[in-house]
């Protein structure tokens, strides 16, 4: 469904991604974990077109994304939920959702039908539909960010740290919804710092280190991997980062 080949990208002269290869199959949840500054967010931004790759190729559903702008990529069903939600704070909850469907304004399912669908996933949003998005609680804002992305009828969803700054119980709720969405066939790439919750949802995990994939494997295998445990679950001192150097 998504194929990255030797993708390089960065900001100005600083290269952040040093040649990444990644294949995501339909229906899969792939999680990318790693420390701050490993390049996880840059990878998502490069896929969604916000950052232009300086090398390599990205293919989505058999089509190269190189010549498409951000808008063109979204309209093909590859939708990113940016880090920190990035809602339109002064606009109402429902207006945020309508804008999520902006790219499908002339085709796709009717707006009312989609609103009803996301409200059934997140009933709290329906209660607050006339409220300004900026006044919602953190958890509600994350729900709105997900719901807004769903309004674009994505086939591949890119999630950047959906658990950030949220209480564990809220995170569990949100991940339960994500799991339901995946069971209905939605493919996802999930960037997370909370490796445990990310690997509990994902089929596959990738550990990213300084712009390279350091470790890849089945989510279950990674959960039990001593090195991953050492660094991301704090069971050993995080001193031996050496072990995580690119292979």
């Amino acid at each position: 469904m998504l194929k990255l080949h030797e993708v390089r990208a960065g900001y100005g002269r600083i290269e952040v991604l040093h040649g990444l290869d990644l294949t995501v199959r339909p229906g899969e949840v792939v999680t990318i974990i790693g420390a701050n500054g490993a390049g996880k967010s840059t990878l998502l931004k490069t896929i969604s077109g916000l950052v232009k790759p300086s090398g390599g190729s990205i293919e989505f559903a058999g089509e190269s994304l190189a010549s498409l702008g951000v808008e063109g990529i979204v309209s093909r069903g590859l939708v990113q939920i940016p880090e920190g939600r990035q809602l339109f704070g002064p606009l109402s909850v429902e207006e945020n959702l309508e804008l999520g469907a902006y790219v499908r304004r002339r085709r796709g399912r009717p707006l009312g039908e989609k609103l009803a669908w996301v409200y059934s996933l997140f009933p709290r949003l329906q209660e607050r539909r006339r409220q300004q998005a900026g006044t919602l609680s953190g958890g509600e804002q994350q729900m709105l960010a997900i719901a807004r992305a769903l309004m674009a009828e994505p086939s591949l969803l890119l999630l950047d740290e959906p658990s950030m700054g949220l209480a564990p119980i809220v995170v569990r709720d949100i991940f339960a919804t994500l799991r339901d969405l995946n069971r209905e066939g939605l493919t996802m790439i999930l960037v997370e710092q909370d490796a445990r919750i990310a690997l509990s949802l994902a089929h596959r995990g990738i550990v990213m280190e300084r712009g390279r994939f350091a470790l890849e494997g089945e989510a279950r295998t990674l959960l039990e991997d001593p090195e991953v445990q050492a660094i991301y679950f704090g069971q050993r001192k995080a001193g031996n980062v050496r072990a995580m150097e690119p292979r």
Binding site: S48, L50, V70, E71, V74, S75, V79, Q80, P82, Q86, L87, F88, G89, P90, L91, E95, L99, G100, Y102, V103, R148, A152
Partner: peptide, 14 residues
């Protein structure tokens, strides 16, 4: 209005 609030998020909505 969305562009006035957050242009890059607006672009992500297409």
């Amino acid at each position: 209005r969305a562009c006035a609030v957050n242009p890059s998020a607006a672009r992500l909505q297409g």
